[in-house]
Design a protein around this nucleic acid. Structure first.
Lengths: 233, 233
DNA sequence: GTAAATTTGTGTTTTATAACATAGTTCTTA
DNA sequence: TAAGAACTATGTTATAAAACACAAATTTAC
């Protein structure tokens, strides 16, 4: 992990989506027990195979979570935005980290130690249930991704990835530009294809006037068509 | 769902792996609130897209859980054995069923209604935590499957599937025969390939004396080699 | 116990996508 | 602001696996 700094930072009670379900005592406890970590662009936050030590909550920035593949092609399994948690699955399952997390951009993270996290899980049922819901949701997503990536053709996979980005990060004020700028390589690692093919297919989409591309900025022109391509492989 | 019958049946307190963490009252409650369902070979137990109604616990038999693919090729995501639960993810996430479950063979299932299940989840922290653990474990499995299926070549995928079957259902008394007899098509749906390719690849493995095949009975001869193939794609 | 249906097996052709090669372009950083 | 590194782009070739076609074997149903 990384050194600390001190930049303007949203207070923990505004970042944690589960703040409302904590008891008075727990809030107090956490306010004294959390840490803040800062990561620069492309810094590794946690590594696949490491012992998990903390629940992490993204305060600002963007994080990609991936599994190292065999063929030197990592598979991105989650993209995180502020307010979202990670690093806790392995704590609960009592396993080593199954994924690596990297900061896409300068990122600030609140951390709560595994012991403290487990202690609250064990004592606050609503808290436990909240994480149960989250994992239940993520599991369906993961299974759906398996089918998406194994059964669709390249165009369908890339279209699906673009729609996922829209859903996940939303659009800019123009109502069209996807609010995250990914390298072609990341786009490829999200949709299980080579970088060349991500580039090529993106160019096709632009040619067909489904999107426009300006460097890493992608504007959605015809979302309906994109959805169709995503569905029909 | 299906009609009831009355065959010799393990009592619920012996089937439920979470019996020990229920309170006296909850045990009492469940003993009056469960139902038993019987399914014949190939009967559908629940369908993708349906509203989830019950937590299901497999008392006897074998069940496959899969997602319907696009290309008419379903993807098997879990294979269940007695004692294992299913059908509860969608209840927790408050979604429709994301998978279909089918009985592989004559199967008996204990069911507990969604309301009752949720009520215990909400009141018994240890119970909630047990399911949290289960989902945490399943999520890593699902992510790992994504990478397995997208990045390995056919031989690696099939080798992985065979090892999975061994791990999941174990071996017969001879210490070599896998304790589940799957159709080639199911083997294919487990490892993301066409049936022809499952047949062909299985034949190659037999040729290379890594396994022997007798109808649907598969004997593992060289587990080490199988592991190697699974790893190196 | 025979017909029909399903499953298994094998050969051939086609195709989607990876791999490779190379060049232009844009970002870093010294 | 120049030099190098990283990223984007595009053409060509190679190949893994699907698609198709059909035959043999086995299971199921009547």
């Amino acid at each position: 992990m990384s050194k600390r700094q001190n930049i303007a930072l949203k207070p923990i009670e505004e970042v944690l989506t589960f703040w409302d379900i904590l008891t008075h005592d727990e809030r107090h406890f956490i306010q004294n027990a959390y840490s803040v970590l800062h990561f620069k662009k492309n810094e590794v936050i946690q590594s696949e195979g490491d012992t998990p030590t903390h629940l992490m909550i993204l305060a600002s920035g963007k994080v990609k979570v991936y599994k190292a593949g065999f063929s030197s092609r990592p598979q991105i399994v989650r993209l995180l935005k502020p307010g979202e948690h990670f690093g806790y699955r392995a704590i609960i399952a009592n396993e080593l980290n199954s994924t690596t997390a990297i900061a896409f951009e300068a990122t600030t993270i609140y951390t709560i130690s595994a012991d403290n996290f487990l202690s609250i899980l064990r004592h606050n049922n609503a808290f436990c249930y909240r994480f149960l819901e989250e994992l239940a949701f993520d599991l369906a997503e993961s299974d759906a991704r398996t089918v998406n990536l194994t059964q669709k053709h390249i165009r369908g996979r890339l279209a699906g990835a673009l729609l996922f980005l829209v859903q996940n990060y939303g659009l800019e004020e123009d109502g069209a530009t996807i609010s995250i700028y990914l390298a072609r390589e990341d786009l490829a690692n999200l949709s299980n294809m080579t970088t060349s093919n991500a580039i090529r297919t993106l160019a096709s989409f632009a040619n067909e006037e489904i999107i426009t591309v300006d460097g890493r900025k992608i504007k959605i022109i015809d979302a309906e068509k994109l959805r169709k391509i995503s569905k029909l492989g």
